[in-house]
Design a protein around this nucleic acid. Structure first.
Lengths: 336, 336
DNA sequence: TTGTAGGCGTTATCAT
DNA sequence: ATGATAACGCCTACAA
């Protein structure tokens, strides 16, 4: 037997489709209890489920939200998604998840697919530095929240949830200066046009300037760990004064530790080590590592909460757009 | 201006909707180049995108696949999803992701939602030990692949992708015996009705029996790390002969290491340590930990590949269901 | 309190 | 090579 439709239920229960429709939508107001019961039983008997396709066609809403992340295998992304899902599911929204692989091209395609899907809202960890890549979304007046990264020319009325990348890194420089460090090696691995690591680099730079420390950026993208090892060997061998390594993203810390092990360098004795981390996995490494921690799940929740407000708006959703900057937590450990 | 429809394009381009539809679907076979061009320009000018809602209504396919995982914040799940997405996206399918929180109730609700969405296929990391929880899917003849875990009474014609949990653990016991261990403490943390840890426990049990080793299961669910520390203190203090700790899931290893640190126990000197791990993060802990490693991304790929075959089937999709058991890799390290 | 009928945007069938 | 038209399943204004 083919999938039951609202007409089947109506026929079997001996009522009209209108009445069944009212039942489906919990509109029991004007319905005799016996009618209601009869429909209830028929629905159960035929295992009827209303067709979402037909509903979204008829209504102007899909109750689907699209989410695009840079790399779902990164813990940041999965925690972000969890936060989003936790908010959206109870609100009656289903979520389509897409992985852009940090590629502008894939992202463009995915936005297009999501627009075709007529999603009610969009949460994006953006890849593209030009906001024009996202203007089709705005043209269609679809609620939108940007997360983690920020296109250069993003309009002020587009929502975003970021953390205080610049400020936290600037403050970190101060701390390192207090600890007597004179050199700061900033280890980044930037794989997309824009990255949260960029404001972190700037913040570190600003802080180092303020405290008269030498700041050396090392960009690892495209290189292997062997290269990093060489690089660190050269640097640590040549720098006068104490040096701190700052890993500007969680996974980068892996490679850094690998390199340190190969070089036989210990921390904090030989070098200081600090890292951004979304997950605190590194607490199990030796005595633990001084961390700058963001809370991706919270970011997801905030983003979804604001998206819901936009989606509930009667008129212009962007009037409800909020720009949120969350704090970065400092988790001290004796690695500096 | 409201969203453009196929009728708008037809009117603007001075052709019929049929022709536009043909254009949209790449059916250029019988179409004058000039007609094609005219439509092409109009589509671009009005930024027209076909409505997925209308298409899925008209056709009998949504080109959407549903995925339910136990806990997306677990690395296993995110890698699994990545594998699935990598296969499905190029094949033209969008993916709805749901997180069951390892809860049978949430899972039931999510299956219901996905059926309402009329997804073309379903990949589930199942929570429920009775397969009857999934029979609505089978009743609707929707392609289905189970991953990682296995309901007790799953029919032979339902696809699944698992790893050799039992065999790998049985073999591990042999290896531990060779290394001179006499006691094996199996650390599990089972949060759902069914878990891949169950066959692992059984395999370990079988292997220990074969080699005359003592096997002691420790189930940590519902307890904190403090409890685990106590438990391990008691055990290690009381057992004669060398003892190996086997963590049966990645995250469990975290707690185990924490406990060992608190107890001041070192490995492999004081106890041996082995763990399942989906990600090899633990290689950065001391000299590394002997691992049993599965490849969740590969599991996702296999699952999606079989799902595609089922979805391409003309008649009974379950005729194409495959049951796959992937190997568990052994990554040796001096922790035993 | 319940029923009838039109239309949401698309594709498939049948013309021309 | 192109068009007209009838569905797909549901909701809702309007009737009864």
């Amino acid at each position: 037997m083919a999938k039951a439709t609202i007409a089947d239920i109506a026929r079997e229960a001996g009522v009209s489709v209108t009445t069944v429709s009212r039942f489906i939508n919990g509109n029991f107001g004007k319905m005799r209890p016996e009618t209601r019961q009869r429909i209830e039983q028929t629905v159960a008997r035929l295992d009827y489920r209303p067709s979402a396709s037909a509903r979204r066609m008829r209504q102007q809403r899909t109750h689907v939200v699209g989410v695009i992340v840079g790399d779902i295998s990164n813990v940041f992304s999965s925690l972000l998604f969890k936060g989003i899902y936790t908010q959206l599911q109870p609100a009656g929204y289903d979520v389509m998840l897409m992985n852009s692989n940090n590629s502008v091209d894939e992202e463009r395609d995915e936005i297009s697919r999501l627009l075709s899907q007529e999603v009610d809202g969009l949460i994006i960890q953006p890849d593209c530095k030009r906001f024009s890549a996202y203007s089709p979304i705005v043209s269609a007046t679809i609620p939108l929240v940007m997360v983690d990264r920020e296109p250069d020319d993003q309009p002020g009325d587009i929502a975003k949830v970021t953390v205080d990348n610049h400020g936290s890194c600037r403050a970190l420089a101060g701390l390192l200066a207090e600890h007597g460090y004179e050199n700061v090696v900033a280890l980044s691995n930037i794989r997309s046009e824009i990255s949260a690591q960029m404001p972190r680099l700037e913040g570190l730079r600003a802080g180092c300037d303020e405290h008269g420390m030498l700041m050396i950026p090392v960009e690892a993208n495209g290189h292997d760990t062997q290269w990093l090892t060489q690089e660190l060997r050269a640097l640590t061998g040549r720098l006068a004064g104490r040096t701190a390594l700052v890993s500007l993203m969680g996974p980068m810390l892996f490679d850094t530790l690998e390199a340190l092990r190969e070089l036989g360098l210990r921390f904090p004795e030989d070098v200081g080590v600090v890292s951004f981390d979304d997950w605190r996995w590194s607490q199990y490494v030796r005595q633990g590592i001084h961390l700058l921690e963001q809370d991706p799940q919270r970011m997801g929740q905030e983003a979804a909460a604001n998206l819901l407000e936009q989606m509930n708006a009667d008129a212009d959703p962007y009037a409800f757009a909020k720009q949120t900057t969350l704090p970065v937590a400092e988790i001290p450990a004796p690695s500096i």
